[in-house]
Design a binder for these strands. Structure first.
Lengths: 196, 196
DNA sequence: GGCACGATTAGAACATAATTCTAGTATTTG
DNA sequence: CAAATACTAGAATTATGTTCTAATCGTGCC
């Protein structure tokens, strides 16, 4: 088998196993020995690829962000009306949290203090997403369908209730899944940013 | 000095020092040795009072929740109109995050997987708060000033945007403090739950 | 007042688990 | 085919969280 494929298989095996352990007992209490065993990986390989335990946690997190962002854009960009677009964002978030609940729980409960290099990488990813989102939003603001707000306000107003509800559901404090209540959340998001 | 006072002084010294360290490098990377040194505490005392490192993190968290909840109720309960009450909740959250930013950052970035006993304790605290809030809300729902929603939706709709904005600010992704933008957030919260 | 009990403090000793290091193996590349 | 590079392996080391035993100090009781 080619090195590249073998290696990336190992890495994703480690990441998968790590998510399972982190979810069950938290990062602090999972020991790398167990990850090693379950992922069929040697100490040397693990530290070669990830640096340390935090490195695994960071790779898992960044992986998740990339997956989320890509799918979010794929869900949003096809929509031409502001209303449909905003609602698609909320619906996508709800569905993503609902069916990737383990990954979502990991990502929303930031159990990690990211290293500088990871922060750097995330800033880059964030910038790219912000750019793409901005391209979609600007026309709707200019045409007067969406309120003009300072850029930092859109995400909290649109996604805040959804993310907060998701956290509640993920921690067992509410019964109905985000997908179940997405219509209410989508409507609220639209109300929050549409031009009255 | 009486034992009780001495002891509670030690505990709060440990908690303060711990917050400083946790905030700077995260829980995983602070070592209890440093806390011991900075708080003038012996190994024995620390483990007697907190059990282990997680115990410190939990005590800090629960402390914060109690402080937050108490002040929140004090801010809300005096208000008689639905509009003023809802807005006071948001404003209080914004102000609290803004001036207790270190504690807020710690609490919003749940770096810990809580132990069962801590979860239990928090459920109790939560229940008490939910009860108090419910007493305030119900009349306004019955009189038709607030929308009738399933109980789990009020918190996300009212506080979601505020908490999300707070996270952004705390992680350096936005310039203006929550207090600076609280009018916008308060208005949005009111829009989200008022009967149209 | 003195005595005994429990709560608290102390820090040396221990154990666990993360990480480093040295050596060896396979793949790619020139 | 040679040399460099990327990767794997696991024993050895270190770091650090935690336990344990002994001492100390208030507090309440005879």
């Amino acid at each position: 088998m080619s090195r590249q494929i073998q290696t990336s298989a190992l890495k994703s095996r480690v990441i998968d196993v790590a998510l399972a352990h982190f979810s069950e007992v938290g990062i602090a209490r999972t020991n790398v020995g167990d990850i090693l065993k379950d992922a069929n990986c040697s100490v040397g390989s693990l530290y070669h690829h990830f640096g340390n335990k935090e490195g695994i946690a960071e790779a898992l997190f960044i992986n998740g962000v990339n997956q989320f962002n890509g799918n979010l854009l794929a869900a949003l960009l096809p929509h031409r009306t502001a209303s449909a677009g905003i609602k698609s964002i909320v619906t996508f978030c709800c569905d993503w949290v609902t069916d990737q609940s383990q990954l979502a729980a990991y990502m929303l409960s930031r159990e990690i203090k990211l290293s500088e290099s990871a922060k750097q990488e995330l800033r880059e990813i964030d910038r790219a997403l912000a750019q793409a989102l901005s391209n979609w939003f600007v026309p709707h603001v200019e045409s007067g369908t969406l309120q003009q707000l300072s850029t930092g306000m859109y995400v909290p107003l649109i996604c805040g209730p959804t993310l907060e509800y998701s956290r509640m559901w993920l921690s067992g404090r509410s019964r109905k899944s985000p997908s179940d209540v997405s219509p209410i959340l989508a409507k609220a998001a639209w109300q929050a940013v549409k031009e009255p």
